[in-house]
Deep mutational scan, measured.
Amino acid sequence: THFTSQQLQELEATFQRNHYPDMSTREEIAVWTNLTEARVRVWFKNRRAKWR
């Protein structure tokens, strides 16, 4: 999946605040970024792996 810079900005900003967002937070992010909750969940999983 290719993310727009706007989507990445929103995802990264949320990641800085919370590395493990809950389901409702992921659903909110999905609405803001026009992505599915599953895409958001996978992005956070991959981002945490990169962060370690």
Score class of each variant (00 low, 15 high):
Phe3Ala: 02
Glu28Phe: 10
Thr1Glu: 12
Trp32Leu: 15
Val31Gly: 10
Glu12Asp: 03
Glu37Leu: 05
Ser24Cys: 09
Asn46Ala: 13
Arg26Leu: 08
Ala13Met: 12
Glu10Cys: 13
Leu8Phe: 05
Arg17Glu: 07
Trp51Asp: 10
Ala49Lys: 15
Tyr20Glu: 03
Val42Leu: 12
Ala30Lys: 02
Pro21Gln: 02
Thr1Arg: 11
Glu12Tyr: 04
Pro21Trp: 05
Gln7Glu: 04
Trp32Ala: 15
Leu8Cys: 07
Val40Leu: 04
Ala30Gln: 02
Tyr20Trp: 12
Asp22Leu: 04
His19Asp: 02
Arg41Met: 05
Arg39Ile: 15
Arg41Asp: 07
Asn34Ser: 10
Trp51Lys: 06
Phe44Gly: 00
Leu35Lys: 05
Thr14Gln: 15
Lys45Met: 10
Gln6Pro: 05
Met23Gly: 06
Tyr20Gln: 03
Leu35Thr: 13
Asp22Phe: 02
Trp32Thr: 14
Phe15Lys: 01
Asn18Arg: 02
Trp32Ser: 15
Tyr20Arg: 04
Phe15Glu: 01
Asn34Glu: 07
Ala38Cys: 09
Thr25Pro: 01
Arg52Gly: 07
Asn34Val: 05
Arg26Cys: 05
Ser5Leu: 14
Lys45Ser: 08
Thr36Asp: 08
Leu8Val: 09
Val31Ala: 14
Thr25Asn: 05
Glu28Asn: 09
Ser24Glu: 12
Trp51Cys: 13
Ala13Asn: 09
Arg17Pro: 01
Val40Gln: 00
His19Ile: 05
Glu28Arg: 13
Asn34Phe: 07
Arg48Glu: 03
Asn18His: 06
Ala13His: 09
Trp32Glu: 10
Asn34Cys: 07
Val40Cys: 04
Ala38Glu: 13
Ala49Asp: 09
Ser24Met: 10
Gln16Ser: 11
Trp32Phe: 12
Glu10Asn: 09
Asn18Trp: 07
Asp22Met: 04
Tyr20Pro: 01
Arg26Ile: 13
Leu11Gln: 00
Ala38Leu: 14
Arg48Val: 07
Glu37Lys: 03
Thr33Tyr: 08
His2Asp: 11
Gln16Lys: 10
Glu37Tyr: 03
Arg52Val: 10
Val31Glu: 12
Lys50Ala: 14
Val31Lys: 14
Leu11His: 01
Gln7Ser: 04
Trp43Glu: 05
Trp51Asn: 07
Gln16Glu: 10
Arg26Ala: 03
Phe44Gln: 00
Asn18Ser: 05
Arg17Met: 12
Asn46Gly: 07
Glu28Ala: 14
Thr33Gln: 07
Leu11Gly: 00
Asn18Cys: 11
Ser24Tyr: 08
Pro21Asp: 02
Leu35Pro: 00
Ala13Gly: 06
Gln16Met: 09
Thr36Ser: 09
Trp32Pro: 01
Thr25Tyr: 07
Asn34Gly: 15
Thr36Tyr: 02
Phe3Glu: 03
Thr14Arg: 14
Arg47Thr: 03
Thr36Ile: 04
Gln9Asp: 11
Trp32Met: 15
Asn46Lys: 14
Arg47Val: 04
Leu8Asp: 05
Val42His: 13
Ile29Pro: 00
Asp22Trp: 04
Arg41Gln: 06
Phe15Met: 00
Leu35Asp: 02
Lys50Gln: 14
Gln9His: 14
Arg39Leu: 14
Lys45Cys: 11
Arg26Gly: 02
Ala30Gly: 07
Met23His: 13
Thr14Cys: 12
Trp51Ser: 06
Arg52Pro: 06
Arg47Leu: 05
Thr33Ser: 06
Phe44His: 00
Val31Phe: 13
Thr1Ala: 12
Thr25Asp: 08
Trp32Lys: 15
Arg47Tyr: 02
Trp43Gly: 00
Thr4Ser: 09
Glu10Leu: 15
Thr14Trp: 15
Asn18Tyr: 06
Leu11Tyr: 01
Thr33Gly: 05
Trp51His: 12
Lys45Leu: 08
Leu8Thr: 07
Asp22Glu: 03
Gln7Val: 09
Phe15Thr: 03
Arg17Gly: 07
Phe44Glu: 00
Thr1Met: 12
Met23Arg: 15
Leu11Ser: 01
Val42Ser: 13
Asn46Trp: 15
Ser5Trp: 14
Phe44Asn: 00
Tyr20Ala: 03
Glu37Ala: 07
Pro21His: 01
Arg52Ile: 11
Asn34Met: 08
Arg52Asn: 11
Phe44Cys: 03
Tyr20Gly: 01
Thr4Met: 04
Thr1Gly: 13
Lys50Trp: 08
Arg48Pro: 01
His19Arg: 11
Arg52Met: 12
Gln7Phe: 05
Phe3His: 03
Met23Val: 09
Arg17Val: 11
Val42Thr: 13
Thr36Trp: 03
Leu8Gln: 08
Leu35Ile: 06
Ala49Ser: 08
Trp32Asn: 15
Gln9Leu: 12
Thr4Cys: 05
Ala49Val: 08
Thr36Val: 03
Trp43Ser: 00
Val40Thr: 01
Glu37Val: 06
Ala49Phe: 08
Pro21Gly: 02
Glu28Lys: 14
Gln6Tyr: 14
Arg39Pro: 01
Glu10Ile: 15
Lys45Thr: 07
Ser5Glu: 11
Ser24Val: 10
Thr25Gln: 15
Ser5Cys: 14
Thr14Lys: 08
Glu27Pro: 01
Pro21Met: 04
Gln6Arg: 11
Arg48Tyr: 04
Asn46Met: 12
His2Met: 12
Phe15Leu: 01
Met23Leu: 12
Arg47Ser: 02
Arg52Phe: 14
Met23Ile: 10
Arg17Tyr: 11
Val42Ile: 14
Lys45Ile: 13
Lys50Tyr: 08
Trp43Cys: 02
Thr25Lys: 08
Leu8His: 07
Glu12Phe: 05
His19Ser: 05
Ala38Lys: 13
Ser5Asp: 12
Lys50Cys: 09
Phe15Ala: 03
Ser24Gln: 14
Thr1Phe: 14
Ala30Pro: 01
Arg47Met: 05
Asn34Thr: 05
Val40Trp: 01
Arg41Ile: 04
Phe3Thr: 03
Glu10Met: 15
Met23Thr: 09
Glu12Cys: 06
Trp51Pro: 05
Trp43Lys: 02
Ala49Tyr: 08
Ser5Asn: 10
Pro21Arg: 01
Thr1Asp: 13
Thr33Ala: 07
Gln6His: 11
Val40Ser: 00
Trp51Met: 08
Leu11Thr: 00
Arg47Ile: 03
Glu12Val: 03
Glu27Met: 15
Arg17Ser: 09
Met23Gln: 12
Thr25Met: 12
Arg26His: 00
Gln6Trp: 15
Leu35Glu: 03
Val42Phe: 10
Thr1Gln: 11
Glu12Arg: 02
Asn46Asp: 10
Arg48Phe: 04
Ile29Asp: 01
Arg48Ile: 06
Glu12Met: 02
Val31Arg: 14
Trp51Ala: 08
Val31Asn: 12
Glu27Asn: 11
Glu27Asp: 06
Lys45Asn: 06
Arg41Pro: 00
Phe44Met: 04
Arg48Ala: 05
Tyr20Val: 04
Ala30Leu: 03
Lys50Val: 13
Thr1Val: 11
Trp43Ala: 00
Ser24His: 13
Thr36Phe: 03
Ala49Leu: 08
Phe44Val: 00
Asn46Ser: 08
Phe44Trp: 02
Leu8Asn: 06
Glu28Met: 13
Ser24Ile: 11
Thr25Ala: 11
Val40Phe: 01
Arg52His: 13
Glu12Ala: 00
Ala30Asn: 01
Ile29His: 01
Gln9Ala: 14
Asn18Gly: 05
Thr36Arg: 03
Glu28Gln: 15
Val42Gln: 15
Thr14Ser: 15
Lys50Pro: 04
His19Gln: 09
Arg52Asp: 09
Glu12Trp: 05
Glu27Ala: 14
Gln16Gly: 07
His2Ile: 10
Phe3Leu: 15
